[in-house]
Design a protein around this nucleic acid. Structure first.
Ligand SMILES: [Zn+2]
Length: 563
DNA sequence: CGGCTTTGACCGGCGC
DNA sequence: GCGCCGGTCAAAGCCG
């Protein structure tokens, strides 16, 4: 193994890439951090001393109470050492999780109709991290995809490390994510005595001061610096083998030394100090506000007065208050963004369209409400709406129509009526002006459920299917779907009422998921961790192309790499 | 026969 | 008021 290369790659990938490619400020602090490839999988690890990590959104699955096969039960999870859990609209990709020896892991598989697994993502971690962040999946997946691509392209050395927190990813998969709920988090907390706080942002301002978006530019350590650190760390010990178990997670964060801007900020916010960071990874949310081209999202906020040019024929689009009826948003789309390595269209943009001009008073009212729960990913982008829209691969929008909340989701799909977890009965079809593709009307077949939706192929791009949901399911998705895998909730405990309420979209508790905050999850397709066949609708993800390009350029420039 | 789609009729809101 | 249009109804048909 070429340690030199390894270290450089380590730095670049773990620190440099997020910074350069995504404007995610990050820094490498004391301790070992590694990136390696096992077979076709990329692995990243944080060594001893790590107490905070933001790397992989899929990790949120580890804390989910949602019943899915092979779920990691809370009491099995090595969460004891976490003293802080930070979520940021994270969603774990639908898939399965399992406990492997000495690590927490989640496996994510993308399974198509033919049952063939196309991509996989695997995450594993140990309790050596007392804190971990969960990045917005759209960004984290893009990052990890890029990293994986890069590492694989360069035949990164393979190394297996059992002892530490890490994630192993081949390629991110679907768009169907599970949203962590407060229930999940509270359970995690209850089982993580060292977890002093859970940061569950509910609106953009929650991130203020808690992430590095408003911090000075990252002062990336030079290669020399990295090597120096390496020398220090490697002083007599193998940086890789040294990583193991860290059982000495500090129980007294206040006594720990702080390091790093984010760290200081966090400490300040918390009122006490926390342990040094192994990695600082910042939510890309704020960055997306500034630079939508870097970190993108499939979410589309449709403002009142939205012109028909943007969304044909929807007469009344009003931003809703996005109350907190969180729940699984199943939008096949959105949030997850991940990565099918594909076209540039995979780069997602979250766009908040400006008012079209009419109903300004009302618009303003709605907008204000919107601001309160503004999704960090929302990008105000007045002009060139159409153009932006074209760049969006998956979108989600919220509107109010005829007094009922409407959620619009655009997802790439070959099927005219992508499966979203609920059962629907078609009750009409019409061709509406502005779109030669017929619009189909569906109503939820659940007894008494009033939820309806209409689905149509996008006039702009027939590859996309636009589904507009209205109403809230006051029930869970059809059991047959949930029990598809025939496994019971292995977390040992059944869903609490709150959890159920959230699932139903009735919950009023704040939700950790920004998406859930934005959208009445129950309106959207059910996010079902148990379904492997749903991912066919989520082919929208961000492409790693541009990211990789950025990485490549950076590597070439900094290190003279010539891949 | 249940569950679903198809499809023309119907209806109500809105703009002219 | 009239006609357009999006949305819905419901009878008929399809299918396993
Ligand atoms: Zn329903």
């Amino acid at each position: 193994m070429n340690l030199h290369w390894y270290l450089r790659m380590l730095y670049e990938i773990v620190i440099g890439v997020p910074s350069s490619a995504f404007s995610i400020k990050a820094s490498r602090l004391d301790g070992l951090t590694s990136v390696l490839v096992v077979g076709t999988m990329l692995e990243t690890f944080c060594g001893p001393g790590a107490n905070e990590l933001s790397m992989e959104s899929a990790f949120s699955m580890s804390f989910c109470s949602f019943p899915f096969p092979k779920a990691i039960t809370f009491d099995e999870r090595e969460t004891l050492s976490f003293h802080r859990i930070i979520t940021s609209g994270a969603k774990g990709i639908a898939g399965e999780g399992e406990v492997q020896n000495l690590r927490i892991s989640t496996d994510v598989k993308r399974v198509f109709k033919n049952e063939k697994v196309e991509t996989q993502a695997h995450n594993g971690g140990r309790g050596s991290c007392s804190v971990f962040y969960v990045m917005h999946i759209s960004s984290s997946s893009a990052v990890t995809d890029a990293l994986a691509t890069l590492a694989l392209t360069n035949n990164a050395p393979t190394q297996i490390e059992d002892g530490n927190f890490g994630c192993r990813i081949t390629s991110h998969t679907g768009m169907l994510d599970y949203s962590m709920t407060l229930e999940d988090i509270s359970q995690a907390i209850s089982l993580a005595p060292n977890c002093l706080e859970v940061f569950s942002p509910t609106k953009m301002s929650d991130y203020d001061g808690n992430f590095m978006d408003d911090l000075p530019p990252l002062s990336s350590p030079s290669i020399k610096g990295v090597l120096e650190i390496l020398d220090q760390n490697n002083n007599g010990r193998n940086p890789i083998s040294e990583t193991f178990p860290q059982t000495n997670v500090s129980t007294n964060p206040q006594s720990e030394q702080t390091s790093g801007g984010l760290h200081n900020r966090v400490a300040a916010r918390l009122g006490f100090d926390i342990q040094p960071l192994e990695i600082e990874s910042v939510s890309p949310f704020a960055n997306s506000l500034r630079n939508p081209n870097l970190v993108t999202s499939p979410i589309l906020i449709v403002s009142p007065g939205f012109s028909s040019d943007d969304i044909p024929k929807e007469k009344s689009f009003y931003i809703t208050s996005h109350e907190s009826n969180a729940g699984p948003i199943g939008a096949p789309l959105v949030h997850s963004c991940d990565s099918e390595v594909v076209a540039e269209t995979n780069v997602m943009n979250l766009v908040s369209l400006e008012n079209g001009g009419k109903d300004n008073d009302k618009d303003r009212e709605y907008n204000q409400e919107e601001d309160k729960v503004e999704d960090p990913n929302v990008v105000v982008e007045p002009p060139s709406r159409k153009k932006r829209k074209m760049a969006v691969s998956n979108m989600m929008g919220v509107a109010r129509q005829n007094g009922t909340q409407m959620v619009m989701i655009q997802v790439e799909s070959e099927e005219d009526h992508p499966d979203d977890g609920f059962r629907w009965r078609k009750y009409g079809q019409k061709v509406v002006t502005g779109n030669a593709n017929p619009r189909s009307y569906y109503r939820c077949t659940y007894n008494g459920c009033k939820v309806r939706k209409h689905v149509e192929r996008s006039a702009d791009n027939v590859k996309f299917v636009v589904a507009t949901y209205g109403g809230i399911h006051e029930h869970v998705p059809p059991p047959e779907r949930i029990s598809k895998f025939g496994t019971k909730n292995q977390s040992g405990s059944s869903m609490s009422q709150d959890s159920i309420n959230q699932t139903l979209g009735l919950g009023r508790a704040l939700h950790s998921s920004s998406a859930s905050q934005l959208f009445p999850s129950a309106l959207a397709p059910q996010l079902d961790m148990n379904r492997n066949d749903v991912l066919k609708t989520d082919r929208v993800i961000p492409d790693g192309t541009e990211v990789f390009k950025g990485i490549w350029e950076r590597l070439s420039h900094n290190f003279g790499f010539n891949f």
